[in-house]
Nucleic acid binder design. Sequence first.
DNA 1: CTAGAATACGGAGAACCTCTCCGGATGGCA
DNA 2: TGCCATCCGGAGAGGTTCTCCGTATTCTAG
Lengths: 189, 189
Amino acid sequence: MRADARGNRERVLRAARAAFAQHGAQASLNKIAQSAGVGPGTLYRHFPTLGALLVAIIGDDVAVLCEKGRDLLDHASPAEALRTWLRAVAEHATAMRGLVAARMAVPPAPDADAALAACHERIRATGAALLERAQRNGAVPGDIEIGDLLTLVNAIAWVSEQAPCDEYLLDRLLALVRGMEPSPQEEET
Amino acid sequence: MRADARGNRERVLRAARAAFAQHGAQASLNKIAQSAGVGPGTLYRHFPTLGALLVAIIGDDVAVLCEKGRDLLDHASPAEALRTWLRAVAEHATAMRGLVAARMAVPPAPDADAALAACHERIRATGAALLERAQRNGAVPGDIEIGDLLTLVNAIAWVSEQAPCDEYLLDRLLALVRGMEPSPQEEET
DNA sequence: CTAGAATACGGAGAACCTCTCCGGATGGCA
DNA sequence: TGCCATCCGGAGAGGTTCTCCGTATTCTAG
């Protein structure tokens, strides 16, 4: 890859991250290209699909979430560690204002699928470790499956974005999930 | 309202229902108008906003769901009645392929807001009756609030649409909600 | 340092979308 | 039947996504 190409790719990614954070996933790709100082053709050459762009952006965040998950494996309370991590996942999804939702909604994304699947798998592995620990501890029912749990958390994050005026909605909805209710001592204090 | 206007309104609604069922909420309004045999201007005169069109379509379904909810108030098991009804709500949302999601996502919808709020209120009242009965019965935790529960069910319905290949996802996600786990006798049979 | 080949850029433009506007057709009423 | 309020339809403005290809730039080899 030529040096100028790499530079343009970086600039597009920076512009896209800013635009998505501001306007959500329906930010105009044209304007992203414009604010990155490149032509539309350049943007589409680097990222043929909205999905490809999203995955490229999300990749970094996934690494952060996985590291946070590894740290939480040492937490004293397995159940609270799981809850904390899932909340971080939801918050990340919310911070990107529909990015995660769009990532799941984009149907074709033919060439981005491999990278997207890798993201999913890394998140899943991290969550599986946390969930298993909490289940061994008996704090979370054993019939819960990590894939479904993550899907549900994504759904909660998505719907929480729709009502940005209600800032506690995310926590209330997370508390409605089996195994995610706040522990008794937290409730009483 | 003139007779031809009424007729056109009906035809637009029919075409819109078909288009939404097929392409989801991102169906082209232009093509809806075209397939209804009217010009774009006519469509926008009757329904100034995507939200207005959605609410007009959803209105009927809300009535059906409310009636179903009233019937379920006589069900022997309050918990199962609530579960059944919430599943019907989710299935209705799913059948409309993103319609309900779009209804929540459309931000302005200035004149449709009254009708939309009425829909929400009717659903909420029906759900509140079912939930309260189940809570008095002790089958569902008392701290659950009907508004949050419906929001969560909508989120689950939305995310289930994203993975149409997994037909059991909806049920698995619903089972992850507190108070919605299948009753023991169902599990063991 | 230079010349040639490979590579990447960028903007014009096609095809689509939403939404508006207004001249003209049409239904209902006297 | 004739008139007027009402409603229709489509042209068009302004936005979007995505493509194509002549041109400019970078790298490499001599």
